[in-house]
Design a protein around this nucleic acid. Structure first.
Lengths: 205, 205, 205, 205
DNA sequence: CATGAATGAGCATTCATTCAT
DNA sequence: GATGAATGAATGCTCATTCAT
């Protein structure tokens, strides 16, 4: 499916862009820089990508998918059985990754977000990820929640973790990420506690 | 003792930039546009701001401060007494504001964040905001938490709300914001429940 | 193996700059002027030169080389045999050239100088210039001098001629160049007289 | 003669410009820089000088006059009697000054030249300089020369020394100034040798 | 498919100069 | 005389995009 040679050149350009974006930022990197590093002609770039934004988003998807996939694998290998513990472990993997690679986090520039992975998750064939999905839907946290609510909850928690990583690691506010971890994990644990029949949330009258 | 005329001109430029940024985006707006609209000479801009980024950040601060201040005022006027309810109401005010003014949200471009307001909060003389702060520190959610932990928790929840607003309102993922609200408020309510003596969060071994 | 088309365009830009620099001065000439006259796009300029200084220096080299080369040819064709006479004739050619083209002299703005040609002389293949070089080294003025001293002497005399041309032709001080010629030529003749065994120059104690 | 307060302010601006020109070059220095350093308002500059060129030339005159005056004084204090030796000593003083202060030499940018001092010399009341002038006109080198020829010779030799200093000290070509000195002094000595009745210089036919 | 020379609209920024106070 | 806020013309330079080869 698709010329393998083409795919190689495409990956080449993405690798080149990845390195340069990390080094000089997306704004500081020009198409010229990218093609020069990839050792192809300027025009060739436009054979594979529409513009800088196009290659940037392709890159973000690739990175996000890898981060999630790696974390999922680690969860599976952890042997943990408690659902909350597994989710927290999952979050921890992601946090640790960003802690180690803050430049990647800066590159993603708050664009790391679970829903960006949505269609990837929906169409994935990665057995590790598939198993993760099943795991979520079979969890005790599903009690009192529809499948959709469950995914939205996961989404919201992911946003929380991602945004906190960004503030904490990149901008070092309001505290080092290690101090923020217990806060985050407590929220996750509280949020995943099976829904009791409580009063509906009050919104503005 | 700063020249009042100068400050007026500065505000003038910011107002001009605000309108244009909303209309055509930060990237689409040029310094020329800004000065033209503010009816001053090009060079005058550089008398007040270093560059486009400079005026943008000044603008973000101004907007964020207003949003928070307005929300705080609304909370005080709501007559609500339950702490959780007040926090949720506060979050709701902010969400509603962004729902009504999605272009402002887009302008902030994920730069709305509680900690950006930190020093403003620390030095504020706005009685409404001061009362809000006291309210947080006197709340039942303080049980089992240090003052710092409490602020970090507030920070984390704010990040969650802000990031979800952005995804939901701007990118319309994963669902309309009104569908996300219950999820968010449940998380907030669960997170603010007074700490029981539970086991410490499990991190990666 | 350099693209001949590229070289043509480069020369084109230099010709355009040459004319404009003479007409309106280097400061008065803008890159826009140059590309407009050369009938290429603005960006094209930066494909061939770093900035205005870059093209200016390329121009100075080209002019200097031509002036020297022409003078050398004239000496060879003069049939003169006496070394001093040949050198003076050489100087006279250069002076006459600048007298005829004072705008070129003004363009060079004291940047005409023998040593700038050094590496050009060292690597030249122009038979006329090569013969000139041999002529210097075989001259009677070499008596009592090393080869290096001889070149330094030539350099010093060239600086003298060049600087006097500038003052005299451009600033018309201290007298018209024709009145200065006998002074210059007497100094050259005296300086090239074979070294007698005289006392070493006295410097400051 | 002239308000002394005004003269002080004028000198102040010149001192400021002098320092800045040496530090950042004439082109790199703005009027803003100058007035800021002199601690006066922008408009004040235009009360004393027409523009940047105006202050630059005033500065060049001041520097040149000082260099010549200092050298003249040193000659007088040297006790030397031989005319050639005195001239060479004079040249040496100037060379040594520029060797010690290459940035000043760069500032002058080939604008150090005897004739610029002409009217200063003609109107000077400095007894040291006056005595120097008399010394020249009483010298044995005057033999066979008119007074005007003598001054032209002095001019030509000064140009030679100045230009060689610039090339040698600033551009370090073709050799360090100390290696160039003997060459220069030999030319000076040869040029100042009383004129024998020799054949007139040959120019281009 | 690939190339890379050419394009040219577009923009930030500077700074000498003025003039109302 | 002194000030310094305001001016705005002027310019160098970038870089995404195209297209003839």
């Amino acid at each position: 499916m698709g010329n393998p040679r083409k795919e190689v050149k495409r990956q080449n350009l993405m690798d080149s862009a990845y390195t340069l974006f990390l080094e000089k930022g997306t704004l500081g990197t020009t198409i010229s820089d990218i093609v020069q590093r990839a050792d192809v002609a300027k025009g060739t770039f436009y054979l594979y990508f529409k513009d800088k934004d196009d290659i940037f988003h392709a890159l973000v998807e690739r990175i996000s998918a890898r981060v999630v996939s790696d974390a999922a694998r680690a969860v599976q290998e952890s042997g943990l059985t408690d659902f909350s513990a597994r989710v927290i472990f999952f979050a921890d993997c992601i946090i640790e990754y960003f802690k180690t690679s803050p430049t990647v986090l800066r590159l993603l520039d708050r664009h790391f977000s679970w829903p960006r992975l949505e269609h990837q998750l929906a169409t994935t064939t990665d057995p590790v990820v598939l198993s993760l999905i099943r795991n979520v839907l079979d969890s005790p946290a599903m009690q009192g929640r529809t499948e959709q609510e469950m995914w939205h909850l996961v989404f919201v928690l992911t946003e929380m973790v991602g945004a906190t990583c960004y503030s904490s690691i990149i901008e070092m506010r309001p505290a080092p990420i290690d101090e923020m971890k217990p806060i985050l994990y407590n929220v996750i644990r509280a949020a995943l506690r099976p829904q009791s029949a409580e009063q509906a949330p009050t919104a503005r009258p």
